[in-house]
Amino acid sequence: MIRKSLFSLLGTLWAGAASADWALNMPRGVTELSAETYELHMMVFWWCVGIGVVVFGAMIISLFMHRKSKGVEPATFSHSTTAEVIWTALPVVILLAMALPAAETMIKLEDSRDPDISVVITAYQWKWHYKYQDEDIAFYSSLDRGSVEARPKNSGIDPFDVENFLLEVDRPLVVPKGAKVRLLITSSDVVHSWWVPDLAIKKDAVPGIINETWFRAEQTGTFRGQCTELCGKDHGYMPIVVEVVEPDAYLAWVETHQQDGERVAASQ
């Protein structure tokens, strides 16, 4: 396995950072807010790069020019009010330039009015339970069998042979494209956290408390995430899969699942 991943490492190095499975950056995601989050992330990143160029640049110049081996006589200055005022005031301005767009996004994120669908998510050690508020659908969603079989120590199964190792569930959350989905998140035991990077949603599931958040996916597809709050031994084994489908497909899905919803609930 080591050889295999070393090999793939070399391969990807050649292929360059463009390679699809060698993600270097935050995904842009499939919601308006995930794109905004991504933009914020990139904006702050570029500010940091800019500041870094100036600071590290000055430092590097100094490291090469102002060394004793070049016979430099040390200067004796030890303060400069002008410089100090500038490098206190300028960062404040830059910070404001970052904070304002961030605040705008936060305000949008808070606005959960007019949802099309509400789903109650209850976290358990170590699986998720989804209940659609307006449909008669409720089910548990846990790690898929392929991963369950491969995960134990010395299972003899190479994770590279398992599709979506540790990121596949038996029953995904299905939602329609374009609909505003309100999530109500709580927990039955310890604190967990529900995260899907492509939706830019991460919210803690806290016992005794109901948390609210929402997303509106603008593309169909399968989006994967994981629990992100340490919740015990199988914390690494409670993935999240959200399938965004066309509205008709969603209706069809509701149709079939409403019928066996009872059965699923009873079998738990």
Partner: peptide
């Protein structure tokens, strides 16, 4: 809306 949760099974 009302949501009910039963704790820890």
């Amino acid at each position: 809306e009302f949501v009910t949760t039963v704790n820890e099974y």
